[in-house]
Design a protein around this nucleic acid. Structure first.
Lengths: 225, 225
DNA sequence: TATCTAACATGACAAATATCATATAATAAA
DNA sequence: TTTATTATATGATATTTGTCATGTTAGATA
């Protein structure tokens, strides 16, 4: 079992503010889990007894709407954490976490993190800072959902995936999402997402090969009306 | 100038976790401001040198979308705080704060709050907890914006205003919002908001008198399709 | 390989929502 | 009070988006 002290992933999250001693305690009680694509890590309403640190893979955090459709609220990538909000508030989870590809995550028990939150100011301030950033992003999402067209949101999602995950050797977006995932991120019907992607293709903004998508005209995508 | 130690409003926010000494220091450096309806307390991009505690009145926090429309992200009421996110992240404000009615707010300088955040664990944990709750609410708003119809969102807004602000002697919603405000909360065109309110009226779900709105059938509003 | 299944794709149509025009009512300013 | 301005209201119409039907493709399974 690998040690947190040697894990590069923690550089991307609040754990980097922990002291060596704190890290060793965390490392001693953490549980590393291997999650297969499509598996549910935790569900809405679950009581989480700790937080998850993503070592590998990508995860979507979704919420089921009353109309029966899942809405993706956030994508969590390597270095990301899940469950902090729930840990802090003491409530059950508001979101469901599903692996988009094979993942490796470390589970850290609640009491360990809570202890560090109370005793290490650097840590608690960093957690606070990241939560503040999450809140800002969420606020911006609200505005986008309310004010932008489906086409604009889909274009922005493609740009986001491009920026966040980059492209493979052939120029295709490294993160492969199903059309259904795109629809669920954008907040539209699967058919609508497919239709708009087809339109983007016709207009030369993107090209596709199966599920793979290649951005052909980033600038034009940025200026979708 | 009134003292924070005697201010009931702090019972509703994180300031209630401060010690008497801390409160007195806060009280000594706070500035109470009287804001008139429609006035801007701070704008997007502003550098805030502190946080605001709402003593009286209601405030809308909005963000300007690229299409030129303001989207209301949150309503802040008596006891609410503004600017914590910005204070914590060290960034400029992501939102604009506009008074919906006459307000009284107390401005507390940044360094005072930051000091308390670093030294009082109860305080920092409470701020964290409230931010976590804000984040949950924001996530839920994303889902609502993405998945619910304008009609549903408007109905829910009416219910929210009813629950949060109550009704006056004649049964009308105590908080009076313009049709434009409703549109900006729901994320739709003003005409659409007006049209749907008219429809609700025809269906007997609400009645109106000028800008005033009275909920006539709460249960039916809750079950709008 | 053949078959099955899930994902992708597209047409046809319906429903929701935005936009533009215009009218009326309410409120503020002169 | 009169006038000017802003908010509310509604019709007509265009656009966007959702829904249902159906077909196609690609990958999984037997």
């Amino acid at each position: 079992m690998s040690k947190c002290e040697q894990c590069i992933v923690r550089q991307f999250n609040s754990l980097k503010t922990l002291t060596k001693e704190e890290l060793m305690r965390v490392s001693a009680c953490k549980i590393t889990k291997f999650i297969k694509k499509g598996d549910v890590i935790f569900d809405e309403g679950d009581i989480l007894n700790g937080i998850y640190c993503v070592r590998e893979g990508v995860c979507k955090m979704t919420k089921l709407s009353k109309n029966g459709k899942d809405q993706v609220v956030k994508l969590v990538i390597k270095g990301g954490m899940m469950g902090q909000r729930t840990l802090v508030s003491g409530q059950s989870s508001n979101l469901k976490a599903v692996a988009i590809n094979d993942m490796q995550v470390c589970f850290i028990p609640k009491q360990e993190i809570l202890h560090d939150l109370h005793t290490n100011v650097d840590f608690s301030m960093d957690v606070l800072k990241r939560m503040a950033l999450d809140l800002k992003n969420a606020d911006n999402s609200i505005v986008d959902m309310a004010q932008k067209s489906v086409k604009q949101r889909l274009a922005e999602t493609l740009i986001y995936v491009n920026n966040k995950f980059g492209i493979d050797n052939n120029g295709y977006l490294s993160l492969t999402l199903s059309r259904d995932d795109y629809a669920s991120i954008v907040g539209t019907a699967t058919e609508s997402a497919i239709r708009i992607l087809s339109q983007f293709k016709k207009e030369g903004l993107i090209s596709t090969k199966g599920k793979l998508i290649k951005i052909e005209n980033l600038e034009a995508l940025k200026h979708i009306e």
